[in-house]
Amino acid sequence: MISELNKNNFNSTNSIIAELKNVTKIFYNRLPVIENLNLTIFKSDFLTLLGQSGCGKTTILKILCGLLRPTNGKVVWPTSTFTNSENNPANLSLVFQDPNLLPWLNVFDNVFLPLKLNNVTFQEASEPISHCLKLVGLYDYKDYFPNQLSGGMKMRTAIARALVTKPKVMLMDEPFGALDEITRFKLNNDLLKIYKKYDLTIIFVTHSVFESAYLSNKIAIISNTPGCLKEIINLSNNSRTDEYRLSTEYSNNCKYISKKLQKYSNENLNE
C-alpha cells in the first residue's frame, strides 16, 4: 500500500544516480519556473514527476540532462558535478515529448543514428538495432520513413533509439501524451517490461495521474508556478499488468494521488 515519506528521506540502500540540489531556474529574469528543488534519484527508481501543465516538469528534466543550466543550485551526478550543457553523463537517454525522428532517415537508420555518431560501424550495430526494433515490435517496419508511420510507431522508434545505446538512465518527457489509450496501455506495459529486463532507472514526466500510478514506484508531486517538489509518494512495486488497472488498489492509489495533486495546486491558487 501507499507509504508516505518526507522529502529526501528514504530508507533505500540503493546507490544514488543523480541529485538536484537547491535548483532554481529563472527564464528571462521573470518569475522562477522552478524554485529550490531538491530531488534524489536512486538506482532502479521508476520516478514520475507529476504536475499540471506548465509547472516546470520538462524544465527539471532538461536541467537534469544538461540541456538547460540551472540559474541557482546544481545537478550532481556521482563522480562528476556539472552545471553546463557540454557535459552529459554517459549512459543516459532522453525520450522527448515528440518522437523527434530525423525525417530523412528510415526507422532503421534513425535507431542507428546514436551509434553512428559514436563511430560504431554498421556491422557492429546491426545486431543491437535489430534487437531493439524487435523489442518495440517494429522490426518489420525498419525500411519505413517516419512520415509513413503512425504516432505510436514513431514513439516506439524513438524508444528503440533511446534503448540502442544501452542506457542506465532513461529520461522520458510525456512520451505517450499524444497517443490513444489502447496504444498507451500497450506501450506502458512494454516500457515496464523493458524497465525490468534491463534494470533501468527511469525518470518519467507526465500530467496523468493514472499513468503515474500505473508505471512508477515513486511519484514526485510538483506544484505550480514556481515548480516545487511537494511530496514524494512511494508505491509498492507489485506486478503491473492489465489486471492491475482494474484492481481496487490501483484505483485507491489514483484517488490518493489525485487528491494530493489537487491539494497542492489549490494551495498555490489561494496564496
Partner: peptide, 19 residues
C-alpha cells in the same frame, strides 16, 4: 528539438553539419 537531441549525443560541429 533535433538540435537538443544532437546536443545530448555530444556531437562535434562537423557531425552536426553533415548529419
Amino acid at each position: 528539438n533535433l538540435d537538443d537531441l544532437f546536443k545530448l549525443y555530444k556531437t562535434n560541429r562537423i557531425q552536426k553539419l553533415f548529419f
